[in-house]
Computed example of a mutant assay.
Amino acid sequence: MELRNRSAFHEYFFETTYVAGIVLVGTEVKSLRAGKVSFNDAYCQFHKGELYVKNLHISDYAFGTTQRHEPTQERKLLLKKKELRKLEAKIKEKGYTIVPLKIFFNDRNLAKIEIGLGKGKKLYDKRETIKKRDVERDLKRYVK
């Protein structure tokens, strides 16, 4: 199962993507498996050399007991030091941001998050993307 951030590709150009582990507590894993995630306004930020995802809303698990979690708490991302240093250097350049793209479970059933290093699109870039998508859709229609 894979949960995608669809609006991210509309808002940003992505240069590179990374797959990171994510530190979860309590009932967050069960909520993820149920698909109760919202990527609205989610972004990643460095704090003391570590990368955290902020504003990622993982809803409360309905059948949870005392180990309930805060839905929009900061969650630490697990990357190699070399990757963290590379990302931190890029972030200091103007216009770059790190955005969560999708959450999935790997072969060993560990929760992973794919993050992308992106630059914001201008309005005319968004129009071009929409135009290109419409043309591709029309071509697929006529080819069949």
Rank of each mutant, 00 (worst) to 15 (best):
L101M: 03
G35W: 15
K94Q: 08
R108K: 14
F46S: 10
I113L: 04
D60W: 15
R6G: 06
F46N: 06
Q73T: 00
S38A: 12
D107M: 08
A20Y: 13
K54D: 00
G35S: 11
R75E: 07
Y124E: 03
I130H: 09
E28P: 03
D41Y: 15
K126G: 02
G116Y: 03
V25F: 11
E93Q: 13
R6E: 09
I98W: 04
E2S: 06
V19C: 08
T65K: 14
V53N: 06
Y18N: 06
Y61A: 00
C44D: 03
E83G: 08
N40R: 15
D41Q: 15
D134V: 01
L139P: 03
V29F: 14
Y142P: 04
K112V: 00
Y96D: 05
D125S: 01
G116H: 02
K82Y: 06
V53H: 08
K112P: 01
E136K: 13
H10T: 09
K102W: 02
V99I: 10
V23L: 12
M1L: 10
R75S: 01
S59M: 15
V135H: 12
S38V: 14
L24E: 04
K122C: 05
E50L: 15
E93F: 12
L139N: 02
V99S: 02
L123K: 13
F63E: 01
K76I: 02
M1C: 00
E50C: 13
K119P: 06
H57G: 01
K30L: 06
L117S: 01
F14C: 04
G21C: 12
L24A: 04
D134L: 04
Y124I: 04
T27P: 13
K126W: 02
D41P: 07
Y52V: 04
A89S: 08
T27V: 07
R108P: 00
E88N: 14
L84Q: 06
T66Y: 13
Y124M: 07
K81L: 12
A111V: 07
K119I: 06
H57P: 01
Y96S: 13
